[in-house]
Nucleic acid binder design. Structure first.
Lengths: 338, 338
DNA sequence: GCGCGGCTCTATAACGTTATACAGGCGATG
DNA sequence: CATCGCCTGTATAACGTTATAGAGCCGCGC
């Protein structure tokens, strides 16, 4: 099949080991022989057989990014950056779809892909601290996004409570008093939903506004349709909200749709804020005010940390890194001038 | 590190080869020994080292899906299905981002990943028949989506001309006369753009409408922003269009945004149609009429064909498969009742 | 002149798997 | 009873790479 080290060695009249050393610089090689080998490599068009290399090295060169939904634009944007970063560091990133399924998350955590991948970046939604702590697999693991804290693994995330707080603060600042939250999972195990509700409650309290449980809408999932349904229910209340904060941009966009169908004006009647800053929200009508996490920072940091662990490098600094976020004001909460 | 065949063999008191045969059924094994081996496998928790297997078999178990933009929801939806299908057939799918770059497409075609993957599904946008024909790599290749015809490879796509034709026909049917097209690349090499423009022209001709080159807007890329800019330019014409057909849903959504900003009503002043049926268009305001390709069929077919080729199976039927599409009427062209 | 260290390079043993060639046993067939 | 073929199982040679041990050579210092 392909050209192997042996072919190069014969061509250049040197030993196998020398070719290997030229190719990956493990030990120095004399200038003259180096050139001869290099020439043979170029002429025959050699590229190493990765399966063999990995077998020998005990690594596969693959890392997995496991996310709950590939379709969610937030994760798609994150994935794109992560793929590029990994490629730049000599690794191939494969996407793993957990479909927000607890069993799938547990399987990955337990090492179902142990022999396929060198490391795992996981965005957990249905598992918590306990499950992570009791894992036995020794594949390096980096957690992103959700609230699994105090575990001996790298964890990259925004401060969910603070982000939520900032969103509500903004709605308060533009004069809203009946602020709803869409995307709670009261009995559920979605960690970040709890955290975002907590931020919501804290911000209300800080503003001296009452917490009304009827304004906290639970959803089964976190897509556009879920947001739309929840908004419809909220509008059916005797005293509907004058502002809504969605668990994420998709939910918020679903809410926008429900408001449009019901003939309400945004932001005049109801203001809307989301989280994620997906591109869709920059082109919706109205455009969507949102909390923008630094996706580039999250993705790159996660990949770099993981690879550092794989390669046994010392990683400075704390395990948990909170990446910055900022509020981006758009039409759905009224432009600053108006 | 992990448990190897050898460990199992020792534990069960049989030879290496027998364990291998139990594990992957290459040759029959007696019932008694099979059970003993199976027990050892279960007890020690063995799973095969894929690098070694791949080295020996000459395959990696990886296939790549190379697309021009991971961020485009159309491709994200496609990718999700493809990943699942591939996993079901025992392969891992890795995403490769060509970023619509000609060099990247050529490199992949030329086999830059030869040693990493067993096969490639490519959505070409900057290369054509010639480039595919002159490729020397022997890795199985399946083309999807764009117009590279008459090449000795599997090719899964919708009939771009017919799809475009159907969209225009619909706009004609609801009484529009000045129909614009957004997303042409006159000098460019985007094949499907040419085909969709052709369908546009044919449908105009069939309806007895004149072709006006000023109503064909060229764009550099095919995202929301490109659609928005092009629409703005079209609105600046002395006699603006009363309908717009976008190269894809993203472009159409950008057009919707430009129309909203300029204060035009959709569909009363301008009707809008896209292609792809991405979920975003079911929640935009107004919702977007679109040509819906069968994404599940495209993705699954592409993966199945590729794997069949990799495994040397005979594949019945023609190389080129045109998958069905249908028009989905939504608010942006007026509901059927109104 | 001898020994020693440094510099290049070579030979070779793994890594864990699968496919091939082969060996032994046992029943059926002539 | 010899022969053939089938059924189980074994031994072993690859697959292509990298790391380790060591061989040869040269110059330097004693």
């Amino acid at each position: 099949m392909g050209v192997s080290l042996k072919d190069i060695a014969e061509r250049a009249g040197v030993s196998l080991a020398t070719v290997s050393n030229v190719v990956n610089g493990y030990r120095p090689v004399g200038e003259r022989t180096r050139q001869r080998v290099q020439q043979a490599v170029d002429e025959l068009g050699y590229s190493p057989n990765l399966s063999a290399r990995h077998l020998r090295r005990g690594r596969t060169g693959l890392i997995a990014l496991a996310i709950p939904e590939l379709n969610n634009p937030y994760f798609a944007e994150l994935a794109e950056i992560a793929i590029t970063e990994a490629a730049g560091l000599g690794y191939t990133l494969v996407m793993e779809n957990t479909a927000a399924d607890r069993g799938a998350e547990l399987a990955l955590l337990g090492g179902s892909r142990r022999n396929t991948i060198d490391g795992l970046i996981l965005s957990p939604v249905r598992i918590g601290r306990q499950e992570v702590l009791s894992r036995t697999a020794d594949t390096p693991l980096v957690l992103i996004g959700e609230g699994v804290y105090d575990v001996p693994h790298d964890h990259i995330a925004i401060d969910n409570v603070a982000a939520s707080h900032a969103a509500i603060q903004h709605l308060v600042a533009i004069g809203r008093h009946r602020i709803a939250f869409i995307g709670a999972t009261p009995g559920g195990d979605r960690q970040s939903a709890h955290l975002r509700v907590r931020g919501y409650r804290e911000a209300l309290a800080a503003a001296g506004l009452p917490y009304r449980s009827r304004l906290v809408a639970r959803t089964d999932a976190f897509g556009r349709l879920d947001g739309k349904r929840a908004m419809r229910d909220l509008l059916a209340l005797g005293d509907p909200p004058d502002a809504v904060f969605g668990y994420n941009d998709l939910v918020a966009i679903g809410a926008l749709r429900a408001l449009a169908e019901a003939g309400h004006r945004v932001p005049e009647d109801v203001a809307v804020v989301g989280i994620d800053d997906i591109e869709e929200g920059r082109f919706s009508t109205p455009t969507l005010t949102t909390i923008a996490p630094d996706k580039g920072e999250i993705a790159r940091l996660a990949v770099r940390r993981l690879i550092a662990r794989i390669e046994g490098a010392e990683v400075a600094g704390p395990l948990t890194v909170q990446t910055p976020f900022r509020l981006i004001r758009r039409e759905s909460t009224g432009t600053p001038g108006g």
